[in-house]
Amino acid sequence: MLKQRETAGAREDSAETRELTYAQAIREALQLAMNRDERVFMLGEDIGVYGGAFGVSDGLIDQFGAERIRDTPISEAAIAGAAIGSAMTGMRPIAEIQFMDFITLSMEQLVLQGAKIRFMFGGKATVPLVLRTPAGSGTGAAAQHSESLEAWFVHVPGLKVVMPSTPYDAKGLLLAAIEDDNPVIFVEHKLLYRTKGHVPEGYYTVPLSQSDIKREGTDLSVIATSIMVPRAIEAAEILAKKGIELEVVDPRTLKPYDATIATQSVRKTGKALVVHEAPKTGGFGAEVVAELVAGDAFDYLDAPVRRLAGLDVPIPYNRELERAAVPQVEDIVREARALVEGVY
């Protein structure tokens, strides 16, 4: 009896300080959403029996059955099309595209159909769809399994784009995305799946279009997305030993993007470095920079606003080249330091 009470007490404590991985946090959000709303279901390649290419949906088929955790044929166009169609007819689908690279095959359905339906039907039809997909390099999966294509979708009116960087945000943003009546592209990062963080039990949402300050600092604002958030924080800890304090801002939602937090941060620090994994040219970072220099931050800038992003190359298979193709911690340290010290 005593032992049982102790165990119960321990479980309560762990509710406060409980750590989950990013993948577990997403799975928990999926479970909560499906328990709460019977219209929510999942579809994708190998998400059922196999549990998903990265194990995110592991065990969900046992809990919710094959009707709600639907393994599909290998057709990304069909996955997107079926998801959009079911969303229009009253369901709240969560589609999974196994690798973001394969979203190329879903483009017609997503861009030409899903993004425009609510607009073209004058609001009489909505597409409450969430499309989850892992992006990013670092797994040695080469050029066709490593891309970061978020900027494409940011450019399409009618789509929302979310990129969580922590387990806490992943759970809260996914639940907010499922609640949203518009198609949301939910971009996960393969290397983040195993990262851990505090995640409250129970249902909560992180509002879309709300940036977050992940670390406070005074000398330079680093506005980073997805995997670049933990890398920026790591860089910040290194630079803190040299007396340089970085403020790390995570946009979290790329579209619709609210520049308020980044603007406030840059008004404080006077300097900004924008970091993302996707190639620099035409990347989301350009949007972040443009919002800063066009807005209230302009008069507070004390250095050129710089971008640190992936090279304009397909992700190489070779491990060293793969590493060199996207920003690493040491790159952020170098660029941040140069901006703060005015050596450029």
């Binding site: 006077g270 302009f298 008069d299 507070y300 800038l301 004390d302 250095a303 005015g342 050596v343 450029y344």
Partner: peptide, 24 residues
């Protein structure tokens, strides 16, 4: 001069030409 420097100069009515810069 950086935008921030120009703003402060404007607010304090300082002529930037009199100031020597320490930046790049």
């Amino acid at each position: 001069a950086t935008p921030a420097a120009r703003r402060i100069a404007r607010e304090r009515e300082v002529d930037l030409a009199q100031i020597s810069g320490s930046g790049p």
